[in-house]
């Protein structure tokens, strides 16, 4: 086990191992996605209040969960990179940013599309929506900062600090619907008393959540591989790999 992690820390082995995992993770993701879509669009019953419009939830909610989850992973990886100077952690942090930004964007836009027919407005400046929009700007800031700094190591350090600073926004997003009154409704699945969602609606929600997690894992490895190649372009193993192809 220890040897496995040691190998994963070496860019050459990471590149090889990640290459082997990507197809399997991708396949698992597609299977969960198909199951989730079938359960969510066909099996799940119509909602008593919102009719069929609530089916937007099966993309909106997992995307919003991912936007928070990926940010925490990015900040944690950034912190590990800062403290232990682990190159692979820096790679994971920077490879996470564009994926997190896309899920945040997806959560915001699908939320807007859901809000129009149900609330009667595309957008309102309540605490939940505003803090989620700030999250998008944090992701974009991380990406922009990384692109602005020429040296990869310096860039990684600067973006890690920005990512760690932004972590305070995560509990604010999560608790915004409880700390302040908002137009956005409170949590359904993570509240402590009995879950207030029908089982046939909860199953596709969880299936989609797993599918999105697998999607993140797959794309993270794909992005991390490219980043590793770029960073190691002057090493012997990359030059050999290039001449062979």
């Amino acid at each position: 086990m220890k040897r496995f992690f040691h190998q994963l820390g070496s860019p050459k082995h990471f590149y090889r191992i990640a290459g082997r995992w990507i197809p399997w993770l991708g396949l698992a993701c597609v299977l969960f996605l198909l199951a989730g879509l079938y359960q969510g669009l066909v099996v799940a019953p119509t909602d008593y209040q919102q009719g069929d419009s609530y089916r937007i939830m099966f993309v909106h909610v997992p995307a919003a969960w991912m936007s928070l989850f990926i940010y925490v992973v990015m900040a944690a990886a950034g912190a590990i990179g800062l403290i232990w100077h682990m190159k692979l952690a820096e790679v994971v942090a920077i490879a996470s940013a564009p994926i997190g930004a896309s899920f945040t964007f997806l959560a915001l836009v699908t939320g807007s599309i859901w809000g129009k027919p149900m609330w009667g407005a595309w957008w309102v400046w309540d605490a939940r929506l505003t803090s989620e929009l700030i999250l998008l700007f944090l992701y974009l800031g991380v990406i922009a900062l990384h692109n602005a700094v020429e040296d990869k190591r310096t860039a990684a350090r600067a973006t890690s600090i920005l990512a760690i600073v932004g972590v305070v926004n995560i509990p604010i997003i999560h608790y915004s619907v409880e700390w302040w009154n908002t137009l956005h409704q409170g949590p359904t699945v993570t509240k402590f008393d009995a879950p207030s969602i029908d089982m046939r609606m909860l199953i596709p929600l969880l299936l989609m959540a797993v599918a999105f997690k697998l999607f993140y894992a797959t794309v993270l490895l794909m992005r991390a591989r490219v980043e590793v190649l770029e960073r190691e372009r002057n090493t012997r193993w990359v030059r050999e790999l290039v001449s062979q192809s």
Binding site: P45, T46, D47, Y48, Q49, Q50, Y54, M57, M118, W119, G120, A121, V124, L183, Q185, G186, P187, T188, K191, S196, I197, D198, R200, M201
Partner: peptide
């Protein structure tokens, strides 16, 4: 000049609600 609906966090089919 504007009325927005705020829905709750409960999701269930109409039969169950009834």
């Amino acid at each position: 000049d504007e009325v927005l609906a705020k829905h709750d966090e409960n999701y269930m089919p109409p039969e169950v609600a009834k």
